[in-house]
Simulated scan of single mutants.
Amino acid sequence: MFTEESDMRIISGRSGAPSITASGTFTGQVLQDPVITDRADVKINTVLFTPCSRTYWHHHSHGQILQVFRGRGFVAGADGVPQLISEGDTVWIEPGERHWHGGTAESLLGHTAITLGDTVWLEEVSEEEYAAASVTTGLADDK
């Protein structure tokens, strides 16, 4: 659909406000900087996970895009098999796919999260599930 009027917005960098400490659906220390949060169909946040911090299991009605800009981390999908993600990676998570993401034990993870539609939060990622991520991705062998 073509329109002559523009609803385009430019959001300039950080607002200068303090980062938000995420809680309730995260394990460990997680900081968020909101980019776009006033729309029902899309939310954008930059998120910094300290080592060992992570989201709870969750899913999004229309999917999610993660663009990693710092460090290394894990993302695990519906099959529960964690994968290593690093700076420069982009992750597409299908609509409705149960997943979690967060930093490794040795590295923080910074990503921009583009969330499409609603988010449904589920249970906490267990310590056993998180510990298995290092083994599954081969990071346990690096020690």
Rank of each mutant, 00 (worst) to 15 (best):
S12P: 04
L116F: 15
E127G: 11
G110D: 03
V68L: 12
R14Q: 13
E5M: 11
V68I: 15
G73R: 04
Y56G: 08
H99M: 15
E128R: 03
D141E: 15
P51K: 07
S6E: 00
R54N: 06
R98M: 13
A40D: 12
G88P: 09
D89A: 08
A22H: 07
W121K: 11
I65C: 04
S126E: 09
T25E: 06
E129D: 12
D79V: 09
I65S: 02
I10L: 11
Q83P: 04
K43D: 06
E87F: 06
K143L: 13
G77P: 05
T27W: 00
F2D: 04
E123H: 14
V35H: 02
A40P: 08
H62W: 06
L31Q: 05
E129Y: 01
A140Q: 14
S126W: 09
P34D: 05
I20E: 14
M8A: 08
T90G: 05
R72C: 01
T37M: 02
L139N: 02
S6K: 00
L122A: 13
D79G: 09
V81L: 15
T55A: 05
C52L: 03
G77V: 00
A132C: 04
S23R: 11
E94N: 15
D7Q: 08
L122S: 12
L84S: 10
L122H: 15
S134L: 11
D7L: 02
E97C: 15
P51R: 02
D33S: 07
Q32F: 10
E4S: 14
G88H: 05
D79P: 03
L122V: 07
